[in-house]
Nucleic acid binder design. Structure first.
Length: 401
DNA sequence: TCGGCAAGCCAC
DNA sequence: AAACGTGGCTTGCCGA
């Protein structure tokens, strides 16, 4: 490698290979048990990794109800389908779901991350693409470190294997609900802006506003629905998509959306304005001036046009968040140096930055990184909502997150 | 043996 | 019907 490139090589992050080896073995053993169980139920060997064989077994041989076809005409066997069948009391779908989870974790993460350790540094060095997304986000590849599991307990075992060197800590600093905050700013939504200023639970506030349920003692399912709606809004919501996400009838999802627009009329205005704008000029812009091209929207079929419209609604929000964290990243090395800190910035995960620092610097890095991130929009843009950052230090990524 | 597509699933 | 946005990566499968 030429010296200039060697000097620019990214710091990489340490993983504990022993931990991942143990995990890989554990996953293998448990997958073998699920496989034996599944084959006993079916009465013969089959490939649990083959959606085609699974579809034939579930809907051909066993004639289970609710079969759906994929775009190419094959039986669909994705997780939501298997969950439905499992809820009806069928044993095989649950085993397949459990097997798939472990297969995913082992195949995509555990085994691959061990392979990805660079012998020269003993660390994993991802590559970031700076111009590969339409919205301005970075993307990460070889290996992708922007999709390390976090949702399930099994998945978090992988995240725990991302560790600091002895004497160091990992520090994770992430923006709290940055996209909803940007929606509140861009759409100029008074209730949302006020809620963020007061530091309220935004999903509970949404639920309360929509369903008239007090925030105190709110049932978790009510909040969960409001949260799904808030995410849906950012994605350019459709009744079909929300219905699918919440496993509810489309009519009910449509009613939720109508109620939402009644309570937050500024959001509908933002969406209508954005659609008109993209039709007119063939692009939309973030508040920092980044353009996202969405050309020829007029020539598309209705389905394609609606897809493009949702992308146009999402792009200024997702793109502004990308702009802000980029600004923070640019300022971070200088800010650390000026503060006399030897911390290094290791990873970016869209709304999160991960650092490694001597344990003695932990608190100072949390404070400094939070400050730089919170003010990263300035002075280019004066946001009318505060940005909040949560920062924590720990020996591994899971506990820092 | 290779490349590409389909299906599926991980993250934000 | 590209049936809620942005990505990367795996296995199975098929044809060159």
């Amino acid at each position: 490698m030429p010296p200039v490139l060697a000097a620019m090589e990214n710091a990489g992050i340490r993983i504990d290979p022993d931990q991942l080896h143990r995990l890989s073995h554990d996953f293998s053993m448990r997958m073998a048990e699920f496989e034996a169980e599944a084959q006993k139920l079916v009465g013969r060997p089959f490939n649990l990794g083959s959606p085609k064989q699974i579809g034939d077994i579930l809907f051909g041989e066993m004639s289970l109800p609710g079969a759906k076809k994929t775009a190419s005409g094959a039986w669909g066997t994705d997780a939501s389908m298997l969950e439905e069948l499992a809820a009806q009391g069928h044993a095989l779908p649950r085993i397949l779901l459990d097997w798939r989870q472990l297969s995913k974790l082992k195949g995509t993460y555990t085994d691959n991350l061990i392979q990805a350790v660079a012998p020269r540094t003993g660390r994993v060095h991802t590559s970031y693409a700076l111009a590969s997304t339409t919205t301005g986000r970075l993307s990460s590849n070889d290996p992708n470190l922007q999709n390390i599991p976090v949702r399930t307990e099994e998945g978090r075992k992988i995240r725990k294997a991302f560790v600091a060197e002895a004497g160091n800590v990992l520090i994770s600093a992430d923006y709290s609900q940055i996209e909803l905050r940007l929606l509140a700013h861009i759409g100029d939504i008074p209730q949302l802006k006020q809620a963020f200023k007061e530091g309220l639970d935004i999903h509970a506030m949404t639920a309360s506003e929509m369903f008239g349920v007090p925030v105190e003692g709110m049932p978790s399912d009510v909040r969960r629905r409001a949260k799904a709606i808030n995410f849906g809004i950012i994605y350019g919501i459709s009744a079909f998509g929300l219905a699918n996400q919440l496993s509810i009838p489309r009519e009910e999802a449509g009613a939720y959306i109508n109620t939402y627009f009644e309570r937050f009329p500024g959001i509908r205005e933002y969406m209508d304005k954005t659609k008109a704008l993209v039709r007119e000029q063939g692009y939309v812009s973030t508040i920092f001036g980044r353009r996202v091209n969405i050309p020829d929207i007029r020539g598309l079929t209705p389905a394609h046009r609606q897809f493009a419209e949702r992308a146009a609604i999402n792009a200024p929000i997702q793109g502004a968040a990308a702009d802000i964290i980029r600004r923070a990243m640019i300022r971070m090395p200088v800010a650390l140096k000026d503060a006399g800190l030897s911390a290094r910035m290791l990873l970016q995960v869209h709304d999160e930055l991960v650092f490694e620092a001597p344990a003695a610097e932990a608190e100072a890095v949390c404070v400094l990184a939070s400050r730089v991130m919170k003010h990263a929009a300035e002075p280019a843009v004066a946001l009318t909502v505060p940005l909040e950052v949560e920062a924590r230090a720990a020996a591994n990524w899971d506990e820092a997150h």
